[in-house]
Design a protein around this nucleic acid. Structure first.
Length: 579
RNA sequence: GCGCUCGUAGCUCAAUUGGACAGAGCAUCUGACUACGGAUCAGAAGGUUGGGGAUUCGAGUUCCUCCGAGCGCACCA
């Protein structure tokens, strides 16, 4: 444990307690947890006592007596059934906060073993509107990328854009029918849905169109030059449109991250060939399939992953397998995250299973489905617009900004118009993102404008407001805006509570990375903000009783603002200094 | 039918992965204002964690079984 820098307090306490446990039974786990009854509690004595056939409180007392915690804890007591309650010494907390204040990382650690991690997220489709499903993938994936990068991992973002497949026959023919310039015009203003639906309609109602589309698919797949040129027009227009949405959303994704399905086209034949050689390929009803063990269809028969359709074409499973090979082989990923909706769970499991069978996904490489639930309307059904159509993502984002501007009302009247606009954008987009990130991602969540834009409760605007208010105090403090790091005074309970909360930032960031759960950071930030406002009510900062305390409280305020801003940034949410 | 996910306060969500009396926020009710930004704070009330059973010192969490919801189940991605 280095003497400089902020300590990993949980790790430190665990190590000290482990040594004490070893005197009773070597190898026993202290099971340290934050506690409502003290600062931390160790539950390990209960399990140990059970194993030893001794009274739990006796075992706990024996451990507490020998634990080397004098420098860190003010009290170590046995409580309840046999819990060991730890209360940190104020002097220790103060010293740690002093170190935290001087630490650029605010106490967040770097990963012990940095890894190359591919994160597959967003994945919109060419010539198709982005909707709320893409919102979730984009927002969650982006937050995870930011956190993993912060922890020192080598993150490779990949946007698996749907830019290939049988649909493109129909889309290209529709492009020709409309006329190139007219089509570009339509797509460049973002009317992807109108374009797609018109193509679909022709396909469904016009036999001649249908036949042209089929021939066009063949031409596309065989690399016909003119067809490819037309295809590129569709891709370019759509990608330009995606970039606008990403800019509006404020995510890291850019053109360099786009690795569309078409990228893997040249690799598909190899996938078939190598599966064939490995003896995994079976022909069933004319289609070439792999039957990974453990999957059954509705009749209880083995469920195939279709590698090559009976018409010779490839489906998305083949592309996904090629992508796995590419990510492991060329990129050298040791972990691949798929930020994809829960309904795809079985498909991804099957792809992973086949890739393992084929040896393309070695045991050393982890493939994780970072699944998420659906976005529901207040009626608890899949979110739809008034007309019953899917909600366009851009319209949703624009509405968020408009509503935020309306909610801000006259409060931002002192700000210049362009700054007001930036604040409304930060509030609106932040609210949408935070609503998406603050719950358990695996569950469906209800999309409710009033709730997410409220300045009360666990929302982005509440956190952004708390941050802006602190910055305001710091500005008024003049040169106290960046107080020199010292060990703060913790005489008031609210000061101590705030200091302790600040020391939890590193754990919160680690928790996000450990289970790909951004809501853990949201919960931490909300708790920090409420702890701060309690402090703010009871402890005057600018009018503190003496200069030392004024300095100390300014420091606590400054560090709180920094943690809030850094935490929100890791979630991809802006924290304006004034609003 | 099989599989996956889920069911927590009136509403929206937590619960550090098996730990103490299940926590917040809305909404409701009580208090506190010339306020370092009230876009606030303090407090009250609100629960048989869908029902039942099992495992153990200890279960919202694990297992079984019902009830209910959503999604998936071979040539769309």
């Amino acid at each position: 444990m280095p003497q400089w820098g902020v300590a990993d307090i949980q790790a430190l306490l665990t190590a000290r307690l482990r040594a004490a446990f070893d005197t009773v039974e070597p190898g026993a786990d202290p099971v340290l947890r934050p506690s409502e009854h003290a600062d931390f509690q160790a539950n390990g004595a209960l399990a140990l006592a059970k194993r030893l056939g001794r009274p739990p409180r006796d075992v706990a007392a024996e451990i507490a007596a020998v634990a080397d915690l004098d420098a860190v804890c003010a009290s170590v007591e046995v409580s309840g059934a046999g819990f060991i309650n730890l209360v940190l010494a104020d002097s220790y907390i103060a010293a740690q906060v002093g170190l935290l204040a001087a630490d650029e990382r605010l106490g967040s650690r770097t990963a012990a073993e940095p890894a190359r991690i591919v994160v597959d997220y967003s994945a919109p489709n060419v010539a198709k509107e982005m909707h709320v499903g893409h919102l979730r993938s984009t927002v969650i994936g982006d937050a995870l990328c930011r956190v993993l990068v912060h922890l020192g991992h080598d993150v490779v973002r990949e946007n698996h854009v749907g830019d290939w497949g049988t649909n493109f026959g129909m889309l290209i023919e529709h492009l020709l029918d409309v006329g190139e310039t007219e089509a570009v015009e339509e797509l460049s203003v973002g009317d992807l849905d109108g374009f797609y639906k018109a193509a679909r309609s022709s396909f469904d109602n016009d036999e001649g169109f249908r036949e042209r589309s089929r021939r066009r698919v063949v031409a596309l797949q065989s690399g016909d030059g003119e067809t490819l040129r037309l295809w590129r027009i569709l891709v370019a227009e759509s990608v330009g449109y995606f970039a606008e949405v990403y800019a509006k959303l404020g995510v890291l994704l850019n053109g360099a991250d786009i690795v569309g399905e078409s990228t893997y086209n040249p690799m598909l034949a190899d996938v078939v060939r190598d599966l064939e050689r490995a003896g995994l390929l079976v022909t069933s009803d004319g289609a070439r399939c792999v039957f990974p063990p453990g999957f059954a269809n509705r009749d209880g028969e083995p469920l195939p992953l279709i590698i090559q359709k009976s018409d010779g074409g490839f489906g998305y499973a083949t592309t996904d397998l090629a992508a796995i090979r590419d990510r492991v082989g060329r990129i050298g990923a040791s972990r691949i995250l798929y930020v994809v909706g829960s309904p795809q769970a079985q498909h991804l499991e099957m792809c992973f299973a086949v890739a393992r069978l084929a040896g393309w996904l070695p045991e050393s490489v982890e493939a994780v489905h970072v699944a998420f639930g659906s976005v529901l309307g207040t009626d608890h059904k899949m979110l739809k617009s008034r007309s019953g159509a899917t909600v366009k993502l851009v319209e949703l984002l624009d509405e968020a900004v408009e509503r935020a501007a309306a909610a801000a009302g006259e409060r931002g009247a002192a700000l210049a118009p362009d700054e007001r606009a930036r604040v409304a954008h930060a509030l609106g987009i932040g609210a949408v993102k935070y609503a998406d990130l603050s719950g358990d991602r695996t569950r469906d969540y209800v999309f409710d404008w009033d709730r997410m834009l409220a300045f009360d409760g666990n929302t982005a605007p509440y956190l952004q407001y708390a941050h802006a208010r602190i910055r305001s105090v710091l500005r008024q403090a003049g040169d106290g805006a960046s107080p020199a790091p010292v060990a703060p005074s913790l005489a008031e309970p609210a000061e101590r509570a705030l200091a302790l909360a600040l020391l939890g930032f590193g754990d919160a960031v680690d928790a996000v990375a450990a289970s790909y759960a951004p809501n853990r950071l949201c919960a931490y930030l909300f708790d920090l903000a409420t702890t701060f406002t309690s402090f703010y009510e009871t402890c005057p900062i600018l009018r503190a009783p003496d200069p030392e305390r004024r300095h100390s409280r300014l420091l606590l305020a400054r560090v709180t603002a920094d943690v809030l801003a850094t935490g929100l940034d890791l979630l991809g949410i802006a924290a304006p200094a004034r609003m």
